[in-house]
Design a protein around this nucleic acid. Structure first.
Lengths: 184, 184, 184, 184
DNA sequence: AATGAATGAGCATTCATTCAT
DNA sequence: TATGAATGAATGCTCATTCAT
């Protein structure tokens, strides 16, 4: 088994962890499953990451398949348009149409953070990234609400197997973004 | 050991499961932990619920501490008012201010449902209950969006330890409920 | 592997634990070593004894090779004689000359109890048994001191590889038993 | 990480080992725990002390918080008095009243020495130091018995959580020191 | 109908030690 | 000389599930 001196070993473990989490969910992530996926001795995973949380955090933090990334890839769509809601609805559609594993992983992270405070900073990073991406187009409070609404819409899609309805998303995002209705 | 012929046994197991899930999270729920909490022999839990999923579903379905219940308790608040957003924001505040375990448990259900399709019907029941409660006050599509937004707002509160901001919730719910802004 | 339904399984595990502790010391006692010695699956040891301490306590409590047992076997030696010190010195010699494993195990118990409070009751039982055996022959306070002195003498023998000196033991035990010297 | 060429490194590792052993017991002593306590890389501990026993011996030999040290500190108490028993009982009280960690560590050494012959010389050093301190005040054989009795008394205190009874100790030490009772 | 016993798989983690650099 | 990386073995323990009674 002469595989001593394997530079990049640490990175390969992280990559394997991401694959495992994507395939089996965060619950399926264990030192053993990751070691097997990375083709690395068990002790190696505990050497580089003393606890599972440590590994999980490293993996999630690197996992750049989140919505924020998709958003960045389509920045042009937002920048050029005056209709922010339409742009967001489109990007959301792209994201949800892509690899479901990435989408599910993102929400697994959110919700796993519910019980594991150690994960909250990572979850916060993800939402912050989206909020920041919206900053140039609207005020911060509205941006926060937009993120909240998008999260809620995605959860509904994921949990009810209802197909994503871009028109619906655009309409509702539009309402939030447009600001308060005129006084009656 | 003469506890044979215990008619409420099955129910007591369910109750214990809810307590366990509330206290330790769904991940902490096992035949053993539930048996201990219910003060019942281990075999009894597997007898009444062949698999863990079966027990989990029974427990969650009964768990009536969800937002829908709080909403029902404050129905008057919604019925009498013309300001639905304000009423919802208030009820949301009541729910989030109460036992956090109930809130966390509800969102943990979402997490579990992501990877365990067997739980999705239960998750759907919960959101449907809220949507239906809103039915008399707005159209179905808006109701769905309101639920989505409330979910997103709650997640932000739970995941970032930010205190719940009722004014913010009222404002944003108001925007969604008010309907599309006038064309410009 | 059809070894289901093995009555006496629990007892066999205890017996195996005693053999392991005698052979390798308390430090060598693990679920695995005991399971192997008892020719029983690993899970069986954890089923019958949820924690190692539980198994250790059960084993030590049953282990009747302690000094108290040897003392009981030679009760006649003490009862018939007016020279208690001589009797005790003789019994001590018999004990130390026997299987060293029993002697070492007894002191391992004493000293393991130093750091593991769970073991203290068992250690107390052992010393109490000796103290009670001495009760008919002397007052309780002297009995306690006799036990203390015997423990100290045994430790010296075990730790310095010095052979046991019965005359020395008899002399010193005699001084303690005789009571205070006349005032000068 | 520039902590190469650290002259006191070896000593700092020993000091850390003593702190670890005092705090968690000898069983809690490992290359890792010591390295962490000494704020030194893991490899450093294995470099300076090839095996754990080597480190343990070095640590114990230096550990000067034993009873012999306390005895030396109170030498005046013994020298000036004609009542050796009273003096010893007082010193014993001082030792047992101080940091329990030192007391427990000393007796843990006895435990370890039972099964690890490599430690016996160190254990012998400790008792010899006490015996020598008594040399000026009594004959060697009595001194040995005094040490034995003190060990037994201390064990009783440590194992039964009984408070130290100085009057009892003085009385019993007095009986041993006084020498044989007059023939009857 | 009910359950105590059983079990094999799995878990996170710790560890002493080796070794290439 | 010093050390970070590596690793295989072992640890206590939990678990879902099966099954004979």
């Amino acid at each position: 088994m002469a595989r001593r001196h394997d530079p990049g070993r640490r990175q390969r473990i992280i990559d394997a962890a991401i694959r495992v989490a994507a395939a089996q969910g965060i619950a399926g992530l264990s030192h053993r499953t990751v070691a097997a996926e990375a083709d690395v001795p068990l002790g190696s995973t505990t050497y580089h990451f003393a606890t599972l949380d440590e590994l999980l955090i490293a993996a999630l933090r690197q996992c750049n398949e989140g919505f924020a990334t998709v958003l960045a890839d389509h920045r042009a769509l937002l920048d050029g348009s005056t209709d922010l809601a339409a742009g967001l609805a489109t990007v959301l559609g792209v994201w949800l149409a892509g690899e479901r594993t990435g989408v599910e992983l993102e929400y697994e992270l959110y919700l796993a953070a519910l019980r594991r405070p150690a994960l909250r900073p990572v979850a916060a990073e993800w939402t912050d990234a989206v909020t920041e991406a919206l900053a140039p187009h609207t005020d911060p409070v509205t941006a926060r609400a937009v993120v909240a609404l998008m999260d809620g819409i995605c959860l509904q899609v994921l949990l009810t197997d209802t197909p994503y309805d871009e028109g619906y998303a655009r309409e509702m995002l539009g309402r939030v973004i447009a600001g308060p209705p005129p006084a009656r």
